[in-house]
Amino acid sequence: MSFWRAIAVVAFLVTVPGLLAGEIPSDARRSGYSFMGPETRAIQDDDTSNPGMLFVLDGEALWAKKTGSAGKACADCHGDARNSMKGIAARYPAFDKTLGRPVTLDQRINLCRADHQQATPLPYESRDLLALSAFVAQQSRGVAITAGDDPQAKPFVEQGRNLFMQREGQLNLACTNCHDDNFDKHLAGAPITQAQPTGYPLYRLEWQTLGSLERRLRSCMAGVRAQAYDYGAPELVALELYLMSRARGMPMETPAVRP
């Protein structure tokens, strides 16, 4: 009896730190901004040099433009985005009651287009979709992230966490192996960050355009030689949700600039 209890205690002591190892304490979390050089920070800091702002301007125009067979613009229902959209992006991906699963901001925009504007969905990573989501998310700049607080979203946060911890691809690496255990080190010339998604959609100098968090996740998956999930796949949304909940309380930076 005591022998088995001892084994159980040992097993418990061995697994518990194993599960918690690597998770970054909340006061040690850092935005990707803090890993960048001074030149790249300067591009983000000044709105007249931040190329992400070009997309925000496009998004502002699209917000007021009537579209679809309903002939309605976003502004016709939501009014001035500066008030109505403040803090919205900080809680996305958010649980959708009708669908019974979380949806990303991009998916929400397309749901709105389908349901209220009777318009065709904008393709993932298209300029118009990125522009609209950048414009909406920019209204949350400086707002603390609250995604994943909804109790109904919890199982999906857990699913995302499991995916984050799960090894995959020919290199057999999990997200956590780099972003929890080895941040601040370098992968070739590039610094490994903590993967706190505070500034999406963001302008990557490497892409020479704005891109979504899903695009970033897919390129990480290609990097470990794994088959990347399709845009909008439930696994990607769950990962996105977990990452946002992991950055809970950190301020939004959209549109951020990253190397």
Binding site: T48, S49, D58, A61
Partner: peptide
């Protein structure tokens, strides 16, 4: 769409 940001 052509947009420009000018700082003068």
């Amino acid at each position: 769409m052509a947009a420009a940001l000018i700082n003068v």
